[in-house]
Design a protein around this nucleic acid. Structure first.
Lengths: 203, 203
DNA sequence: GGTTAAACTTATCAAATGTTAAGGCTGTTT
DNA sequence: AAACAGCCTTAACATTTGATAAGTTTAACC
């Protein structure tokens, strides 16, 4: 029974890897199973803590996680959300094996498949397919950062909120106002005001 | 004579590629010369224009370029500066072969070595070394975007300006107030006020 | 040398966002 | 049921930033 569930988890990962690799059959289940282990994180538990050197990358089978910085005043600033079929990692810190600049924490009970640094290095340096996948993943998250940069440069908080509702349509109702504000780089109070304006405009 | 100059240009590129590739000798001059062509851009000329599908990536031998969005009101918002020994590209658009979302323009007379899309694809898909270099380059610019995201989330304009002076020590006096403000996501007037405050504090 | 255009500064007022404080609502704990 | 904590809203005031306008400096051009 447990085995069946685990196989399903691996199926999700394999189908995602295949998709990224242009649906070429470059992986078999045994390869994946030996590299990735299943882990569970309850709501509120951390996948990575600020200051730790990350030793793994995860793939989310089910659930939702937030990435956040903590500033000198102790405030959280969320840089990213990851949900089903996303990878989850303090990526730059993992690559350079330096302390993570941010926490990654489960917002819901979350199931992941994780691969450790040693296994990652073996794969990335020896297998062209893995290198392609790693590069494409990096390109994807780079593109997301680039879009986010553009919105910080050009748009005010109202516009960024409006974009957030579009970009994270399905996810946005799983995320609290406080966390949404944190993601937008404003205070919860400011976001509450913005919502109020929207309500008055559209109602 | 011209040949000598060109060889020097290639030397800079080769040494940079070697550095990225952990100083392994994976390139020879002929390989590089057949892939990269020398181009010159005068101050004010564009390397890529908004809306064009980028057909090349450049390596700056000498000079300085700015990357900028143009918003609906016609204002420039600078996302990045590239100078000597940097690659220069509308990278995401180049990779996906979609129209560039921003302009890249020379702030000084600039010499680059450029590689076109076809040549890039040949190399990236066949040669492991190129794949590694492309991945590392992507990782590097991703890391820069990540730092920039953190500063937009956590810091106000004064702090961002102060960080800019540190991060771009050598470059900052080659960049105008207007362009600096644009890079920081504020108006030139606002930056002028911030400078004034700094002056009064430290003088 | 004089003209012009662009860059930079300063001032004033308006709008957006932060800060502090208070109160309501919800779900949890005891 | 009562107490409590966390989330959300609202209000009042302070600060930051934007918008407009005017004036100065700088640099380029004729």
């Amino acid at each position: 029974m447990q085995l069946t569930i685990k196989n399903k988890n691996y199926d999700v990962l394999i189908s995602e890897l295949k998709r990224v690799n242009d649906n070429k059959d470059a992986f078999n289940e045994d390869e994946i199973k030996s590299a990735f282990k299943t882990e569970y994180y309850s709501k509120g538990e951390s996948f990575i803590r600020t200051g730790d050197v990350p030793n793994k990358i995860g793939f989310i089978v089910k659930g939702l996680m937030k990435y956040y910085y903590i500033d000198p005043e102790g405030n959280e600033w969320i840089k990213f959300f990851s949900a089903e079929r996303d990878f989850v990692a303090s990526y730059a810190s993992f690559l350079y094996q330096i302390p993570s600049l941010y926490n990654i924490e489960a917002l819901e009970n979350t199931t992941i498949l994780s691969i450790n640094y040693k296994m990652y290095l073996n794969n990335i340096n020896k297998l062209m397919t893995w290198c392609i996948i790693a590069r494409k993943y990096t390109e994807k998250i780079y593109y997301e950062k680039e879009k986010r940069e553009a919105s910080f440069l050009q748009k005010d908080a109202s516009e960024r909120y409006s974009d957030f509702l579009n970009d994270y349509k399905q996810l946005s109702n799983r995320i609290s106002l406080k966390d949404t504000a944190s993601f937008l780089g404003i205070t919860p109070i400011s976001l509450s005001r913005i919502r109020n304006k929207f309500k008055n405009k559209n109602g």
